[in-house]
């Protein structure tokens, strides 16, 4: 499977993401700059983390209006898998590709630590490598990861199985409603998550709990 990593000014987790995708799929992803209006023929598009446009206005707000996002929208409509991590998640909600919004952490502090994630839905393109209810470790590093959705949206998101990950065992680092750490669109091909699975994929990272997300999305799950 082929993948692409989107690059924008201020995103700084792109290199970690490129390394993770290369190691797990055996193929380096193509990189796509923000001004591109066409995306190469790939199976997975990843928007990595960072601080696009210095988090000005609202996190992800300016990035979400760049030309590349129109191209990503049309790819997503065609069913191509899209994964947004951290700032990538913020960009996807700002672009309207995912429901809800990400607000300032309830503590008002930047959090950089490890949390536990419960795999709420293991029947998705991104989580088939895991079992439902499995708890995995994952690093987080963000200032604005407090997921919010109004009552009606929340009901729909919960009812449709769009909540993919929840912070487990009291590790909610940001005050997210219903402990939501990752949500997907109703079609199931666009996932956004605040935690950084690309930073826990091999022994050198101290574990490989995050590997399953990329292995699932890239269809390289070991038999």
């Amino acid at each position: 499977m082929k993948s692409a990593v989107v690059q924008l000014p201020g995103l700084n987790r792109d290199r970690d993401m490129i390394a993770a995708l290369t190691k797990i799929s055996g193929k380096a992803p193509v990189t796509v700059w923000q001004t591109e209006t066409e995306i190469p023929d790939v199976d997975l598009i990843v928007i990595p983390g960072g601080f696009s446009y210095g988090d000005y206005l609202r996190c992800g707000a300016i990035a979400a209006r760049m030309p590349v996002m129109q191209a990503i929208k049309s790819k997503a409509e065609q069913g191509v898998r899209v994964l947004g991590v951290c700032n990538g998640f913020q960009i996807l909600v700002e672009a309207g590709l995912l429901p809800g919004a990400l607000m300032r952490n309830a503590s008002l502090k930047f959090v950089c630590r490890e949390v536990k994630l419960e795999v709420v839905n293991a029947d998705t393109d991104f989580t088939r490598a895991y079992a439902k209810g499995q708890v995995i470790r994952s690093p987080v590093a963000h200032h604005d990861g407090n997921y919010f959705a109004d009552a009606e949206t929340l009901k729909a998101v919960e009812g449709n199985g769009q909540v993919v990950f929840r912070y487990a065992e009291g590790t909610n680092p940001n005050g997210s409603i219903n402990d939501i750490a990752g949500v997907m669109n109703d079609k199931g091909n666009v996932l956004g998550m605040m935690p950084h699975p690309e930073n826990l994929i091999e022994v050198a990272h101290g574990g490989s709990d995050g590997r399953g997300i990329f292995a699932s999305a890239l269809d390289v799950i070991a038999a």
């Binding site: 300016i62 209006r65 700002e94 809800g100 919004a101």
Partner: peptide
């Protein structure tokens, strides 16, 4: 509608 406000919140 397009940029200055996020009408979700």
């Amino acid at each position: 509608e397009k940029l200055l406000a996020n009408t979700v919140i």
